[in-house]
Write a protein that binds this DNA or RNA. Structure first.
Ligand SMILES: [Mn+2]
Ligand SMILES: [Mn+2]
Ligand SMILES: [Zn+2]
Ligand SMILES: [Zn+2]
Lengths: 143, 143
DNA sequence: TTACAAGTTTGTAATGATTACAATTATATG
DNA sequence: CATATAATTGTAATCATTACAAACTTGTAA
């Protein structure tokens, strides 16, 4: 089942000093092709048909490795669900309270620095909104 | 043990349609006097001496009521620890990765609206940074 | 090819925060 | 006081995550 994407993913993982095992490649490709900020459970169920021996522990292990090596960022919006994002650039998240989807949005956080954080060493910036998404708003209007 | 603060807290809870029981008053006052974004466990241990019969379930119940009635906001920074904030205005949080403290900072999020969210109904805006706080930076410099 | 070492994956058990729930206790009102 | 209503409590259940040891893979060298 070697194809170009497979090779690219493999090389990419290698370039990040992650041994490109079958499970890791598949998990990485799932994240790359599905920018939906999935949970561990969603990743697991998306791949269990293709990798029948996959265990959730492996998904947990793999995500930990990806995070440690900065391939993936953890998304903490609800404290009840841990999600993962293959997009590690600074960007905003909008969580729809109706359908539960998490949308990305672009945001420039460089110029909003405040005096309150003078002398603070900032490693990471996160922003998220909550509300009702476009699709859900339209659906409820036409009822 | 009636004092002016107690009466004020009592009236305030009543004005928000929350029956001002002893536990609720004490929890509310703890949050008002300690802007440290405490966990359930911290609230519980801070009050157990004063209210020896207090149960954690009551702290959970009370925080749920406070949140439902918008007296308190939930702070989701780490998915491993749920914290609570008596300050419900929009403001930023800075979590120090060294000492674990969560600092407030002022931020104006009104003008950073992006086209990506046109048609989206925004209910809530959250922003948090992570890094090393002033105090921890200075401590490590003088080692 | 075979043997071995190192790393990966797996299943199961442990942990720990949160929730469910029924019993007990407190509070308010007549 | 008597009663109804609401709040509190302790215990058990739930569920996501982590710990861990055994089994399996992979790469390398004899
Ligand atoms: Mn994203
Ligand atoms: Mn705050
Ligand atoms: Zn929606
Ligand atoms: Zn610090």
């Amino acid at each position: 089942m070697l194809n170009i994407n497979n090779i690219i993913s493999k090389d990419y993982l290698s370039s990040k000093n992650i041994k490109p095992s079958f499970a890791r490649i598949k998990i990485f490709e799932y994240l790359s092709n599905n920018h939906i900020h999935p949970t561990i459970d969603e990743i697991y169920h998306a791949l269990i048909d293709e990798i029948p021996t996959l265990s959730k522990t492996t998904v947990y292990n793999t995500m930990k490795i990806f995070i440690d090596n900065k391939l993936v960022k953890l998304v903490s919006i609800e404290d009840t669900e841990t999600r993962y994002d293959i997009n590690v650039q600074i960007h905003g998240h909008f969580k729809c309270e109706s359908c539960g989807k998490i949308y990305d949005f672009n945001v420039d956080l460089h110029n909003l620095l405040t005096d309150d954080l003078n002398g603070y060493n900032i490693h990471e910036k996160n922003i998220y909104f909550k509300g009702i998404c476009n699709t859900c708003s339209n659906n409820s209007n036409t009822n």
